[in-house]
Simulated scan of single mutants.
Amino acid sequence: MLTFRDATPADVDTLVGLIESAYRGDSSRGGWTTEADLLHGQRTDPEGVRAVLAAPASRMLVAERAGEVVACCQLEDRGEVGYFGMFAVRPGRQGDGLGRAVLAEAERIARGWGARELHMTVIVQRAELIAYYQRRGYRRTGELTPFPYGDARFGVPQREDLAFELLVKPL
């Protein structure tokens, strides 16, 4: 059974490990969400996760199965808009519905805040990930934000054309 809870400061190291394993390095190749061919270096760090936990309108949602942290995401209350980010599912568990369940719970929470839409940004080169979100009702906006080149907190880009696209779902 999958259970959800808010992350606490005691979860920081576990969450950093989970997020890193889902997106970067060889371990990320065990799932389909890897960014290892686009970016090297870190995806997040303890300070980044602590900042999410400390922000008054933000929270980290943790999904557990049999006492093991198997997925997480960031949610931020921006009034009529909710923001969804730092989404990670343990690579060996990807493809068995955990991501869909976490996304549905995040949408439920955002609706409870009174959000009319849920927003997220995805690297435009991640066509399979964008398609995943489109199948779940998110639409591409064409609104692009440049990748923060030169800021090692977000990784070391392996190409020069990276950008984020805003995806939006009405709630």
Rank of each mutant, 00 (worst) to 15 (best):
M1D: 13
L2E: 08
T3C: 08
D6P: 06
D6S: 07
A7C: 08
T8C: 12
T8G: 15
P9Y: 10
A10P: 10
V12S: 12
D13R: 01
D13M: 11
T14W: 11
T14A: 15
T14N: 14
L15R: 01
L15Q: 02
L18P: 02
I19K: 05
I19E: 08
E20S: 03
Y23F: 15
D26E: 15
D26V: 10
D26Y: 02
D26M: 15
S27K: 14
S28M: 09
S28D: 04
G30D: 11
G31A: 06
G31K: 00
A36N: 07
A36P: 04
D37Y: 10
L39W: 13
L39F: 11
G41Y: 01
G41W: 00
D45I: 02
P46E: 14
E47Q: 13
V49N: 10
V49T: 04
V49K: 04
A51F: 12
V52Y: 07
L53F: 06
A54L: 11
A54K: 02
A55H: 05
A55T: 03
P56L: 13
P56R: 03
A57N: 15
R59S: 04
R59T: 01
R59V: 03
V62G: 00
A63L: 04
E64L: 01
A66K: 02
G67H: 02
V70M: 05
C72E: 08
C73Y: 00
L75Q: 03
L75Y: 01
L75T: 01
E76C: 12
D77K: 00
D77Y: 01
E80M: 14
V81S: 14
V81P: 05
Y83K: 13
A88L: 01
V89K: 00
V89D: 02
V89A: 01
V89P: 01
R90F: 07
R90M: 12
R90Q: 14
D96G: 15
D96R: 13
L98E: 08
A101S: 06
V102W: 11
V102R: 09
L103E: 04
E105D: 05
A106K: 00
I109L: 08
A110H: 00
R111F: 14
G112D: 07
W113A: 00
W113N: 01
R116T: 12
E117T: 00
H119E: 15
M120D: 11
T121S: 12
T121F: 11
I123C: 07
V124H: 08
V124C: 14
Q125G: 06
A127F: 13
E128C: 06
E128V: 03
E128G: 02
L129M: 09
I130T: 05
Y132H: 04
Y132L: 10
Y132P: 03
Y133K: 07
R135T: 06
R139W: 13
T141D: 08
T141N: 05
T141W: 08
G142C: 05
E143M: 05
T145K: 05
P146V: 00
F147S: 03
F147Y: 09
D151M: 06
D151S: 03
A152L: 10
A152Q: 10
R153Q: 11
G155Y: 03
P157T: 04
R159M: 13
E160A: 13
L162M: 13
L166S: 07
P170T: 09
P170F: 04
L171D: 08
